[in-house]
Design a protein around this nucleic acid. Sequence first.
RNA 1: GCCCUGGUGGUGGAAUUGGUAGACACGCAGGACUUAAAAUCCUGUUCGCUGAAAAAGCGAGUGCGGGUUCAAGUCCCGCCCGGGGCACCA
Length: 924
Amino acid sequence: MEYGFRDIERKWQDAWKQNKAYKVDNNSPKPKYYVLDMFPYPSGAGLHVGHPLGYIASDVFSRYKRLKGFNVLHPMGYDSFGLPAEQYAIEHGIPPAISTEYNINTFRSQLDKIGFCYDWDREVRTSNDDYYKWTQWIFLQLFDSWFDRKSQKARRLHELIDIFSSEGNANIPCPGDKHLHFTASDWKAFNEKQQADILMHYRIAFCGIGEVNWCEALGTVLANDEVINGVSERGGHPVVKKKLRQWYLRITEYAERLLAGLDTVDFSDSMKDMQTNWIGKSFGAEIDFDLVSENMLAEGKKLKVYTTRPDTIFGVDFMVIAPEHELVKQITSSGQASAVTEYIDYVNSRSERERMAEKKISGVFSGAYCKHPFEERQIPVWISEYVLAGYGTGAIMAVPCGDERDFKFAQHFNIPITNIIGSHFNGVDANPTKEAILENSGFLNGTKMLDAIAISITKMEELGIGKRQTNYRMRDAAFSRQRYWGEPFPIVWKNDIAYALPVSSLPVALPQLSDLKPGPDGQGPLANLPEWTAFEGGTREVNTMPGYAGSSWYFLRYMDPQNKQEFCSREASDYWGQVDLYIGGTEHAVGHLLYSRMWTKALFDLGYIGFDEPFKRLVNQGKIGGDSRLVYRVRGTKQFVSAGLKDGYETDEIHVDVTLVDGFDLDMDGFKKWKPDFADASFITEEGIYKCGSRLEKMSKRYFNVVNPDDIVVKYGADTFRMYEMFLGPVEQDKPWDTKGIEGVHRFIKKLWRLYADAEKGIVLTDATATDASWKAFYKMLKKVEEDTARFSFNTAVSCFMIGVNELTDLNCHSKDLLSKLLIILAPYAPHISEELWSVAGNQGSVLDSNYPSVEEKYLVETSKEYPIAINGKTRTTIELDVNLSQQDVEKLVMAEPVVIKWLEGKSPKKIIYVKNKMINVVI
RNA sequence: GCCCUGGUGGUGGAAUUGGUAGACACGCAGGACUUAAAAUCCUGUUCGCUGAAAAAGCGAGUGCGGGUUCAAGUCCCGCCCGGGGCACCA
């Protein structure tokens, strides 16, 4: 009876599908457990062996939890809307709906071969209208909400309107326009358009004009997390700042809660740090400086700056405002007018990328001054792009002795520097210390800087010239894309007012469109459909939602995927609650994770769900790198020289498809057939073998180092593949793929098989009770496998199986009782062979629904242990000792050891350290 | 520059709280079975030194340099290198 994994795996995959082995019910007396994978965007390239790593880990854990008596939700779906899918569709000339469907089918067939325990009845696709209906619905809830800073939660807009009608906005500062102030009677007097504009400034999902990241090549705006180093994350196209009307999510209002929530979840430190840094909270002060300018427009105006170091107020030598600052025009003196205009033009001519690439010091004097609040001196106001319009107040007080950028700027423009930190400032570099005792600092003289921060703020508050202020670096998230393949907004514009469409009209279906060219005036492709945009006397919103819209809440839909009345019933979300274990890559650290955390908080605030953090625990799987193979072509010829001989030639390195290489040995005939270019290649070999070079790099088509899981499954089976992926190393860690290494795991599985069945003799299981030694081997394995599985140390768990099977083989164990138990603990890792042998052994039911065995400690009790004896910390010998011996007994036995006697050289030891169950150390 | 990670044999990695460094595999070398191959099995495998060899022994050894400790891959201080994130954020 051979291990015919192909038949076995197909047989059980079919059986499980037929009897709905992975169907999950929302009603169960068992405790719930929710395991979630970050769902994939179904790319055209299909899966390579790196992708399923996280899926296998979560699958193993789900199956383990199920055997431990939990009702486990473990769903899968597709993030099928979004820019990449649309780009793919455009590049291949296929409508995105069709290419997406096709790509999903490819993914699905690949996933199916690996034997996952997903409940496919719960599959979601973000681009299906029965899904995006609810994405639109949630958008409408956010559109109909505002964030109450006092209670720190989202509330309904009608409550805000009630407040406005009774007291204006005196107690509700406007997040969208802080200069906005009105009374109750003002409110009542406003017309519909004015009221709508004001409400828009409060809505959590809002439309506004703002500086956005515009990517010309992609024809759309991008969110901050989609821009890396001034170019688009996808495609690497240049990105420029542009003022546009856009939809946004007011995620900044949630900054504090997003920060606080991190303390309640189990994410890695680096993940929490990334989010914390992205939010970028800082403490400081806002200070008003009186302006002095010959320009009449500056009359009575103040310049408001934000600083985290108000203690350095006496070290201010100049002010800097952003080129986009609203005061630029008003304060510029006539003498400086042309220089300022020229500078602003220069700044506007520079793309984001240029600014990033060459950070040269630039700026212009405005001609205006500020009065120092505590001293009779005037401070020049400069304009420079190193101050960002979007952060703080868009203006700073520059303290060159303490801040590196201010220092460089002062040096560049020969601005005199005031030293307030004495010897801490050397005149060559700025020193941002907080330890110095202040000098040249008026009432702060003699105070330590750290203490002066609070003192100075208090003073400024007394004088009414400044106040304590907390700032966040995070910006509101751009929420519209000028693209086709996304959720249409359920919004219609009439007389420049955005009206929400009624819930009854959802979903607003994405119309079919064959030509995806941009619409006029930078609008999306939907603008090309006048018959669609014209709607009930108004115009539909033609932007679509970004890729992260659907993924911000998909974990909720899995709980209740077929619900036609609600996005997810409260009953279902109360039952399943938070995702207990979320597995995915780090690339979503600040994008997807922040957005879905925010959506969860908003839905919680509005009473739709009962928890405000979506993911209780997050595990980031590492990436699997490709192991590329290289051949060396002698320059200018069609001759290829083997890696060991290449140093004697001038060569060009060429990537060769890894499937043409066994280890490092090139299949030369295969190589010739691979590409027409190489058909007449000749080889300089090492004793008839052409050795390739190798390099570890990203697994990618262009390096020809992609390994397809389908090929591995055909050759070794899904069980081997699953176990090998787990065996490769810790899940969280990046690691290279080495197809050769899989042999070891495959051998293990075959060896396991032989405990149950023999090629000639057939089934070799016996009813005889297993020996104590076998039970000991088994329980040792069980204990370690369970511990390791529970702490996601899957690689060591696989080792334990190997050790256990090696031991049971040596012990010649064929006990049906023992080996059936072994199948249960193996099933999470290798479900197919476990199920097959479970039925071969004549067990009832499915191994998937067995009870995880518990450890019988009595077999693990040790009466003696082999202790290492160290002399001065260095192990010299070992000794077998009874575990219950006293210190005195041990000392006596140790002193009698020949090796110890030899090292003592007749002296007596200073001390003998005996740590029970660990070791013995003799100190000489 | 700042923050976070990681650095262990030829390779992937193990060592959960300071207690036998290198588990388990890959690869390699040798052997058994076979006409042969595949498959399978066995033995060895951190490096260096002393042994003809085996047995055995000695020395060094977890990126580098210090330290704490009876004992350090693990803890502390100072560096170096790789990976990831952020980057005029006042």
